[in-house]
């Protein structure tokens, strides 16, 4: 599992992904951690297959007992099917996940010791020591109850499936040439994102945020001007093409 520090200030953002030992028939996913002095938040911690390499990688940054918060942007298995395993490893943790999905996510057998903190439709915050992360509604992108995480201090938006691209193993961590990256993400967004209306609402909301890094759950991270390039491109894209 590769680890890349994408922000270092009063706290850190670490991206985990490109696991070389991942079974080839499951898609690659990016996991993110926010590390403060005594706490650690894992965002979209991944599927069951990724649990062991993911935990082993985190232990380079934080001890188990300081993993206090998990966040699931939505209910998909590549996002949170590892919950049952985290539940047995963590003794004092909360899972922040959409309220709408609570009864479904509990099917992953993971809330015996972990506390499920339901996120209402209008969003909320996660407080991690002295930093406060905002939970930005991203409903229907692609899941009916979906949230992204915005860190106003680091100016990072963890954007779940928005901005994702399904690429072969070993893909670079950052978008290097936006124009050539477009074709890698076009079909993903057209097919997975169901609603132009939801897309416009999200873009309107996100354009008001000061973002340096847009960090999706699959594929490469956007930084600097490429964040704006992505928003413009996504704004113009027709989605929900399967019907």
């Amino acid at each position: 599992m590769k680890m890349t520090k994408i922000y270092e200030g009063s706290h850190q953002w670490i991206m985990f992904g490109r696991d070389e030992n991942k079974p080839s028939n499951i898609i690659d996913s990016n996991q993110y951690a926010v590390r403060t002095a005594n706490k650690c938040l894992l965002m979209d911690p991944g599927g069951s297959e990724l649990f062991a390499p993911m935990m082993a990688a985190i232990l380079h940054h934080a001890p188990v007992e300081q993993i206090t918060d998990l966040f699931a942007s939505h209910q998909d298995p590549d996002v949170i099917s590892s919950l049952g395993l985290w539940d047995q490893a963590l003794s004092n943790a909360k899972l922040h996940a959409p309220a709408l999905w609570e009864g479904f996510i509990r099917h992953y057998l993971g809330c015996e010791s972990i506390e499920y903190v339901p996120i209402p439709d209008n969003g909320g915050t996660i407080k991690l020591e002295n930093i406060e992360l905002q939970l930005i509604p991203a409903h229907y992108l692609h899941s009916s109850a979906n949230f992204h995480v915005y860190d106003p201090q680091a100016k990072i938006l963890m954007s779940g499936d928005v901005g994702s691209a399904l690429e072969p193993a070993g893909t670079p961590m950052f978008v290097e040439n936006f124009d050539s990256h477009i074709e890698k993400m076009r079909y993903f967004h057209q097919r997975w994102m169901p609603s132009n209306h939801a897309k416009r609402a999200w873009i309107e909301r996100v354009r008001n945020l000061d973002i340096d890094i847009l960090a999706p759950q699959h594929g490469r991270i956007f930084k600097g001007d490429d964040v704006k390039h992505f928003l413009d491109w996504f704004d113009a894209l027709q989605v929900g093409v399967a019907v």
Partner: peptide
């Protein structure tokens, strides 16, 4: 096994 060289391996 995987985290032998990790700083916080002992916490597991």
């Amino acid at each position: 096994e995987l985290s032998k060289d990790a700083a916080h391996a002992h916490s597991m």
